[in-house]
Amino acid sequence: MSDSRTVSPIASGAAAPRLRLATRLAGLVVLLFAIEAVSGVLLLVYYRPAADAAYLSIAAINDEVRIGWVVRSVHWWAADLLIALAIAHLVVSYFSRAYARPRRSAWLSGILLFTLVLGFGFTGTLLPWDQYAYWSIDSTRQTIAGIPGIGSFLIYLFWGGWELGGEVLARFFAFHVGILPWMAAALLAAHLVIAWRTGLQERLSAAPGAEPILAVDFWIATLLCIGVLLSAALSAPPALLGPADPLTPLPHVQPRWYFLPARMLLRHLPGAVAGLTVLVLFVLVSAVPLIDGRERPSTLATGARWAIGLAAIGVILWMAVQQYVSA
């Protein structure tokens, strides 16, 4: 009988071997990470990270390079799917207490990895240098500047000044393809090693001979994931608005869906308070294993975990919907 609170062996014998849902989701996240890397390298062949060339190079990828628009669309949709599955992995890990001893470091590395994934999304949004890219990133400046203590530092790190121009594009490009991938690869490796050593290895060794069946499971999930990804990519390729024009603001610009709650905070709270709220939430989520770190929690702690988790999801979804319908 599987117990979510302890490291349980894979059910063996007549039943099919089973892995945790979080582990299965993690497998798909790694798959999408690989798809992002491959499609990203393909885009890199034609992309030019300069203010006067970026938009034209993306337009050329869209219009002139054979199946260039498919590669761009796959890169776009795989990023969305990756973030969605990473969120699902995070949520399932939270509710299944995958953060408790001995996997506290797996939780922390996972949170950092998730932050890097959002960083990929943020920096990647600017690279097409079209109107949406320009004005959606420009509108986040106040949020970042509002983070207490490090807001100004981050603005100078990413923006290189206060204005959004070619220098910012070059910086975002450097982060997107030169810095974040290495950081993410290293953290991903660490995350996988920790997960392997703190349960996965034990679960697999408890059911000898189950690997081929698990591999088939992963293969079927991979096929379905790629099917969904290509369906989205081929039927709804990302739009490319006109080239970035600093003199013509794009009205009612919304950030990417995963930044909607943060934008809602910014709209209703002053910059510093919004930044502080995001920082406090980040610290709180990171510190979950310290707050609820015992191997076997009390009934009260379990109830509290579910109540807090569901409330947080509810509030975040509500904020996202409010922001979405406000435009």
């Binding site: 069946i213 079927i220 096929l223 790629i226 099917g227 369906s231």
Partner: peptide
Amino acid sequence: GIWGYVFAAGGVAYLYRRERL
């Protein structure tokens, strides 16, 4: 074509899985 392949390859994999079990 893609979904045809997904179902064909997935179906083969599923049958293989049943046999292994």
